[in-house]
Design a protein around this nucleic acid. Structure first.
Lengths: 132, 132
DNA sequence: CTAGTTGCAAAGAGTTTGCATGGCG
DNA sequence: CGCCATGCAAACTCTTTGCAACTAG
């Protein structure tokens, strides 16, 4: 959808790439880029465009009121499920065979067709569990 | 947390019980109960209380900006995962053995501990798929 | 040049809060 | 009767939008 590569858009894309798989709020992004010079409206407009292109996921953590945006950097994301750690906020990409197994199990037993693009499993990752 | 059973609280709880497993916005609830007489602030205050007690789940559909509340009427919900139909909004309770299988599979292969209370799988249910 | 993009400020929408009144127990 | 909950309106936060100025291609 976007046609011109402005310096604001470039800065935003760069920041998202550096923080792939992290959950970021619009305000966080604006603050992080304030030295680059980008207005909060431009942040929102670009995030919305990216969301419509399917390059970004918009999410809210349960219990929280905040809205986060997440740039998911995974070329094969159409075929895998996502695990989100509630402690560190990182996203893990579930191996394709595992995802397939789950999805087909579900389709059989409950006759429910999973929408992989919009499903996120929440929990605690191995690293965070080790830390306690 | 709540101490008194006011008529507003009673009306709200009754409405939630009638519409268990449906996704409702604060405004919808207020409108539905306007004959009973409840203010939007009371709706929000009671929903927040219920959310803190864990009797209600607060969620946003991906892509949408709207916030929904859902009263999950399931006595054994601690042990099952939830499937949410993106077409009709209904929640399905995944059979316990199925959930256990999935959770243990994940724990083994990806060493990720699922938080069943906060995880919702999105997709399309059998009924909606039949309808097209 | 010319259309897409930005910044600003104002408008909106949803949610929260302060305070006086009212009602449950 | 005392305290909690309600209603109202104002306050807040997050997000969107109108418009003039700017700039990438």
């Amino acid at each position: 959808m976007p046609k011109y590569m402005t310096k604001q858009r470039k800065a935003l894309l760069g920041y998202l790439a550096e923080h792939a798989d992290e959950e970021l709020s619009a305000r966080e992004i604006e603050k992080a880029l304030q030295s680059e010079g980008i207005s909060i409206s431009a942040v929102y407009r670009n995030l919305s465009a990216l969301e419509q292109e399917g390059k970004i996921r918009r999410l809210t953590k349960s219990g929280s009121r905040e809205v986060f945006y997440q740039y998911t950097d995974c070329s094969s994301c159409r075929d895998c499920l996502h695990l989100s750690c509630e402690k560190c906020g990182k996203t893990y990409h579930m191996s394709v065979p595992g995802a397939e197994l789950l999805v087909s199990n579900l389709a059989q037993s409950d006759e429910f067709e999973i929408d992989k693009a919009n499903t996120v499993l929440y929990g605690v990752c191995r690293d965070c569990r080790k830390r306690g």
